[in-house]
Design a protein around this nucleic acid. Structure first.
Lengths: 229, 229
DNA sequence: CTTAAAACATGATATTTATCAGGTTTTAAT
DNA sequence: ATTAAAACCTGATAAATATCATGTTTTAAG
């Protein structure tokens, strides 16, 4: 485990790279390294956060509970991403829960350092702003997908998204394994409907499965389905 | 028409209030006042923006065209709000179109002033960041609503949202009048379904209508419907 | 004032999706 | 190794929603 933020490779992917040496040293001195087991929560919807989490390894699902008791997964955050900055910046309690999809390693960074740096280092503020702008665009896209695409199309998108963003194993299965329920919560459908579509896609040869594992078997046909053919 | 930004009341509601006198003077000297007629576009999805728009009067719908040819309205922006900052900050072309819902007055502010100020005035950057964080939270809420609530619930929410954010006339109709098609594009449904629900709500006494105009007749019953009773 | 276009409206029907109910398989703890 | 719980799966059915067809009303242009 590399313990100095200054040398941490993960940082290259997120807004912390806009910090200067001095600022990074402060972060490094006050950060807390944590491991989180699969299924455990980094935080729950409604909590006040005392800082942000920088993901070193593993994946977290960010979700919001709806009135009918279902969880909607709004985003998956993985290596190099920062979780909780929206809430810290707006000085509000979080609107989302963060739960580990697999075992995680994260660094907790106290919010004082973040807000101090925001207020004094414009480069950092602009860098964070860029990331937030990107997240906002992605959220807009999700809104449009949710309202205009069918469940089958959203399932197909989910498989391609996971393939492109998390890769596949040498035997062609998606590296990131989600439960059927998680898939349902990502695309916003009932677990049974999700399972049915997985069965259908498998029968049609779009995907292959082996227990929990799912692999993309025919990317073009999945893409055609997304495009409405 | 008040022509100096320093005195513009609209500014009090958006991130421009974090600018100092000197910065505001620059904005004031380079801004361009524009009127946009109902139905005209401020910009189209995919365009590169040379600046941002500060809304002085009127309302704009921000929407994204989906593959099947339908428009999804992602947000309504009105007096005091700033449009286009996401795109300018990320230095990307816009992901949304902005079309006037009614006659508008806006000030166009060139992007150079915005980015210069972002890079030199941390107060301004943090203020913009706060607004963006707020927008992101709202977008998350929309995602959850889209996937977990029924069309009827979303329609009911739309009426209450318009009442709370734009008010009503003395005879109890919503101040902001949207076409049935716009309502459909806000809640993400077919125009026919939208019209049917309006008829049903009217029959049940939840709302009243008079031509295009719609008024909330029974707020509690609408809220009960949203809450799942 | 006339008239074409757009917006509004409603019925009939098809499609999509959720729900309920009942299974089997897998996982993890004793 | 046994067993309870969780995850997975499928059928039957109901509910929600979209689509198509068609007619009426409103709006805006000439």
């Amino acid at each position: 485990m590399e313990s100095r933020c200054e040398n941490c490779i993960v940082r290259q992917f997120n807004s912390l790279r806009a910090m200067n040496k001095e600022e990074l040293k402060k972060v490094s001195d006050s950060k807390v390294y944590k491991t989180i087991k699969k299924g455990e929560a980094l935080f729950q919807e409604g909590e006040k956060l005392d800082g942000i989490f920088c993901v070193r390894d593993g994946v977290s699902k960010l979700s919001k509970l709806s009135a009918n008791g279902k969880d909607q997964i709004v985003k998956l955050a993985s290596k190099g991403e920062v979780i909780g900055q929206r809430s810290v910046i707006a000085e509000e309690s979080t609107n989302l829960s963060a739960v580990a999809v697999n075992d995680m390693e994260v660094c907790f960074i106290p919010k004082e350092i973040i807000s101090n740096t925001l207020n004094t280092n414009p480069n950092f503020a602009v860098e964070v702003l860029r990331h937030m702008a990107h997240d906002l665009k992605e959220a807009d896209d999700v809104i449009v997908n949710m309202s205009q695409k069918t469940v089958k199309q959203r399932m197909a998108e989910a498989f391609l998204y996971l393939k492109n963003n998390y890769g596949e194993t040498e035997d062609g299965f998606l590296t990131l394994t989600l439960s059927r329920e998680d898939y349902a919560n990502v695309v916003g459908t009932a677990t049974e409907s999700c399972i049915r579509i997985i069965s259908e896609f498998k029968k049609k040869g779009f995907i292959k499965t082996s227990g929990k594992q799912i692999g993309v078997a025919n990317e073009k046909q999945l893409q055609d389905l997304i495009d409405g053919f």
